[in-house]
Amino acid sequence: MRADAKENYNHLLTVARDVVTEHGANASLRDIARRAEVSHVTLLRHFPTREALLDALLQKGLEGLTVKAGELELSTSPGNALLYWLRNAVGFVQVYSGVVTMMATALANPGSALHASCDNLRKAGERLLKSAQAEGTARADMEGSDLFALIGALGWIGDQDSFKPRAEYLLDVIANAILIGRSREFH
């Protein structure tokens, strides 16, 4: 990519991050282009679909969570690794309003621009879950897809003004349901 094209790309991502943070995953692509002071066609040249734009926005964070899962596997007990990662994953999906629906849809669609990033995240969580299950600190009847669904559900709860005040408490409830033999609060 030419230097000026790379600069435009990075500028669009910076502006898009701001707009999506303010207005959610369904923010207007035209608003993003306007705020970036480029044409809608320029935006579409870099990001032909909303999913492609969101994938570019989310990719670094999703990759970071995937890498973090690997680091946690090596650095702490499986139960603690799962809990720490779960908290981080929920916090990540709460940053962008509406992203949970897109991630769930992308996971079911291998042709989606977000599919690979979401699938890698699901697999990373599944590895942590399986390690905790092998250690005997996590429910044996859960699957990685269950964990991914719970991240989505908890992210959605944090997205809702009426539920947001209880989001942290509800994360603790879910953590207590997943992890065996833990104390009531895990902050």
Rank of each mutant, 00 (worst) to 15 (best):
A52H: 12
L53A: 07
L54F: 11
L54I: 09
L54A: 03
D55E: 11
A56E: 06
A56P: 04
L58H: 03
Q59F: 06
Q59S: 14
K60D: 12
G61C: 09
G61Y: 08
L62N: 10
L62P: 00
E63H: 12
T66C: 08
V67R: 11
V67A: 14
K68V: 00
K68R: 15
A69T: 11
A69I: 12
G70S: 08
G70N: 13
E71M: 10
E71A: 07
S77R: 06
P78Y: 03
N80T: 11
N80E: 15
A81G: 08
L83Q: 10
Y84D: 15
Y84I: 15
Y84T: 13
L86C: 02
L86H: 12
L86K: 05
L86S: 01
R87S: 05
N88V: 02
N88C: 14
A89V: 00
A89Q: 01
G91L: 06
V93Y: 07
V95N: 15
V95Y: 14
V100P: 08
V100A: 14
T101D: 11
M102F: 00
M102W: 07
A104Q: 11
A104K: 08
T105W: 06
T105N: 12
A106Q: 08
A106M: 07
L107D: 14
N109C: 01
N109W: 01
P110T: 06
G111P: 04
G111R: 03
H115I: 15
H115N: 10
H115F: 09
H115W: 14
H115T: 12
H115Y: 14
A116C: 10
A116L: 14
A116Y: 02
A116V: 15
S117M: 02
S117N: 03
S117L: 00
C118Y: 05
C118I: 04
D119I: 10
N120V: 07
L121I: 02
R122Y: 00
E126S: 15
R127E: 09
L128R: 04
L129E: 02
K130I: 04
S131F: 00
S131A: 14
A132E: 08
A134G: 04
E135D: 15
E135C: 05
G136F: 01
G136K: 12
G136N: 12
T137A: 11
T137M: 03
T137W: 04
R139H: 13
A140P: 01
M142Y: 13
E143P: 03
G144D: 05
S145W: 00
S145F: 01
L147E: 02
L147D: 01
L147P: 00
L147S: 03
F148M: 10
F148P: 01
A149Y: 08
I151F: 05
G152A: 08
G152Q: 05
L154H: 06
G155R: 07
W156N: 10
W156E: 09
I157Q: 08
Q160A: 13
Q160G: 03
S162N: 05
S162W: 11
F163A: 15
F163H: 15
K164W: 11
K164G: 13
K164R: 15
P165G: 05
R166T: 02
A167P: 01
E168P: 00
Y169E: 10
L171E: 10
L171K: 12
D172G: 03
D172H: 12
V173G: 02
I174H: 00
A175D: 12
N176H: 13
N176T: 11
A177R: 15
I178M: 15
G181M: 01
